[in-house]
Amino acid sequence: MAADPSGPRPPATTAATRLLVVLGHPVGHSLSPTLHSAAIAAAGHDAVYLAVDVPPEQITAAIAGLRTLGFLGANVTIPHKHAALDAADEATEEARFIGAANTLFWEGERLVADNTDAAGLRGVLADDCGLRPGDPVTIVGSGGAARAAAVACGRLGAATSVHARRPDAAEAIADLAVRAGGVVPSNTDPRVVINATPLGRHGEPLPNPFMGLGPGRVALDLNYGTPSPFLTSAREAGGRAVDGVGMLVGQAEAAFARWFGARPPAGVMAAALPR
């Protein structure tokens, strides 16, 4: 059947069209192109947003390519958030404090690294997880997502502990939460557990202490898509299960503002999410 010529058409791509990209490894699951494409169209910008899988050993070259090809900006996701911070010409105060970057944008000729993850997560913690000052929280992981989660928890006054393979990394992230305004935990029995690792994307469980969180407890997985065993086990045990979609939208709206000077029309990104 021929396409309906009266239906909606994508905007024409021209020589003036600006390019945006998310760099990750893997990145095929990313919803960022869906969200940003919807926002770009709604705001009437002449831009295209792509997803590119970049192995860790090639991320520095990929960011150099953004300069060469004149990209308007970029998002970076696992496992490139530390490398993006190092590759930029300068960084915002937020990116320096968190120690990782998820957004690259231009100020004149200088490529600037920013981090919009903590801001995007704060509303999820307060509204979806009901996090209150003094609540015990455990973050699982030690990468850029864990650092952003620690800052978001600290700014809400939580008592944050960290579970990671390297004790020194766990200690550094727990200290970051305190420096962001949190308190030192008096116990390690969390009301909220945050998975800030890729575990679960391929059906892997978290370590046993964090599976099956029951009534009054919250499992927050910063991943999104197919429910992970971590979230499924919490839901089956009577706990609250929250995925990473809220953070995805929050950080994306803030990144969009870095590139275009204003946030996207309200609700456009959330409405673009697959149902």
Rank of each mutant, 00 (worst) to 15 (best):
I98N: 10
D89I: 04
A51K: 02
R132T: 15
P55Q: 05
A113M: 05
A51S: 13
D114W: 07
V76H: 03
A61C: 05
A91T: 04
E107G: 10
A119T: 02
I63Q: 03
L125F: 12
T116C: 14
W106N: 01
A95I: 05
I78W: 11
F105K: 00
L72I: 00
A61F: 13
A74Y: 07
G141V: 05
T68H: 15
G108S: 08
R132D: 14
D53P: 12
H82L: 04
D53F: 15
E109D: 15
A126W: 06
A118C: 10
I59G: 06
A100P: 08
E57T: 09
L50I: 09
A113R: 01
A118S: 14
V137F: 14
L104G: 03
H82I: 01
L66F: 14
T116L: 08
T77S: 13
G123E: 00
T68E: 11
H82P: 00
V137K: 03
P56H: 10
A84I: 04
G120Y: 04
A74S: 08
V52R: 11
A84W: 06
I78T: 10
D135C: 10
V112G: 13
A100N: 04
A126T: 03
E93G: 14
R132Q: 15
G143H: 08
D135P: 07
F105D: 00
T68L: 14
E107M: 06
G65N: 10
T68P: 06
Y49S: 04
R122F: 11
E57G: 12
R132V: 15
F97K: 01
N102P: 10
L121I: 01
E57I: 02
A101G: 09
P133M: 05
F105N: 00
A51P: 11
T116F: 14
R110W: 14
A91P: 05
C129W: 09
P56I: 02
A51I: 05
L104P: 03
G70M: 05
T138N: 06
L104M: 04
N115W: 09
A100L: 05
I98T: 12
G65P: 10
A119E: 07
T138I: 13
K81P: 09
P56D: 14
A113E: 02
G120E: 00
A61S: 12
T77L: 02
L50N: 13
A118T: 04
